[in-house]
Design a protein around this nucleic acid. Structure first.
Lengths: 220, 220
DNA sequence: ATGTAATAACCGACCGGTCAGTCAGTTGCA
DNA sequence: TGCAACTGACTGACCGGTCGGTTATTACAT
């Protein structure tokens, strides 16, 4: 339903806020039902306007999607980068902090919504995916990678390939999000993400093998 | 089509093979353009029939999607489980073997196609996602979890929570697949998956921290 | 082997519903 | 009164699903 408040004027003239309201409504519906299955009229209704009015602010349905991603992309990257670019000391603590922060952010459905939507519609709108990659991934990934590299250089980490190790750092959190978000598969205990990250970091830094057994294993 | 180059009869009578041909065509198109953007007529054309003929084998477009998932679900789970259920000795070798096998399988686009499609259409067809979860995930995940648990019980692993650790085991491979498949982000060197899994297993079993620095648990 | 009837496999024009996008008209405000 | 914000009926295109008609194949008789 529209939370377009009926107090005040019946029409919301002076329409600077309109585009954002439309985007909010569209985001919710796109995530809920997908781009194709969402009608412009539904977006309009949810934003508290008529279909026609939507076309005063956006030239097409696709432009709404575009505006959505554009609006979301900047803050995501900037926020993550602020943490990563100026750290000091043991990179392990930075990794821990950033992982927990990211996980905390990802708990907010509104913030997962964009990547989620993007994954769904990426086939039909490759330009959007490209933009997301350019603006977010191509900035965040090298930053994390550099963090690992400097960890190796400064003797905190074993001499691993940073690009590959990056996947070991973020993979478990991603796996957890996918299982939880998409399929509702959650571990038995509560407060999962905190516990998951603690468990993950323990293994990441100290390994899974029991100390008394022989180390160094390879399966080739 | 010119009847000059007819190999075989113009009509493919004795039509036992038809449904599978339709499913193959549909899978390719659904993955390429999504369910909504794929027209039944396109599926028909690709399978070498007319639209009408498709409806001789499937009552609706949605039934095609359903049939697709049904056909794919069984082999996936059975194959993975065969490996997991009867192992012996050090579970680390089993983990290594299974990870590499899974990664090898995932290199075949045809086999990733179903999960990929499922993730896209899951919002619009929740029953399908449920089915996939029941038939595949709810069988594979407990098996892996049990493998880890027995590794802990038998002293190969440190006392970790199997359910959480599972995510540490498979996460990096998933992260790699996502980055590579969806965004084309690959590490610099070639032959990525082999290298990735080697790097991942090293860290998973022995940890990322450098030995000379302070460690939390390790004695060796 | 050859005609002929019966039938299985298939075709594609068409119908009906849906929905993105348009536009002539209405409403609230200065 | 002027005009910017807004409305909602309308249109045109598109597509899932149907159905009367067509073509290949089989069965059988001659």
């Amino acid at each position: 339903m529209a939370d377009a408040l009926q107090r005040g004027p019946k029409f919301r003239r002076r329409a600077e806020a309109r585009p954002d309201e439309v985007l909010d409504a569209a985001l919710a519906l796109f995530v809920e039902k997908g781009f194709a299955a969402t009608r412009v009229e539904d977006i309009a209704a949810r934003a508290g306007l008529s279909k026609g009015a939507v076309y005063l602010y956006f030239p097409s349905k696709e432009a709404i999607l575009e505006g959505l991603v554009k609006r979301a992309v900047r803050p995501i990257a900037d926020n993550a980068l602020g943490f990563l670019e100026n750290y000091a000391g043991d990179p392990r603590s930075v990794i821990g902090t950033v992982l927990k922060m990211v996980a905390g952010r990802l708990a907010d459905p509104m913030l997962v919504a964009i990547p989620r939507l993007l994954v769904r519609e990426m086939v039909n709108f490759p330009e959007l995916a490209q933009m997301y990659r350019r603006e977010v991934l191509d900035r965040v990934i090298p930053a994390v990678s550099a963090l690992i590299a400097s960890g190796v250089r400064e003797g905190y980490f074993r001499p691993v390939d940073p690009e590959l190790t990056l996947r070991s750092v973020i993979g478990p959190v991603i796996a957890h999000m996918l299982m939880s978000e998409l399929f509702g598969i959650r571990p038995a205990g509560g407060l999962e993400i905190e516990r998951l990250i603690d468990n993950h970091l323990t293994i990441l830094f100290d390994g899974l093998s029991a100390p008394q057994r022989e180390r160094r294993f390879m399966a080739t």
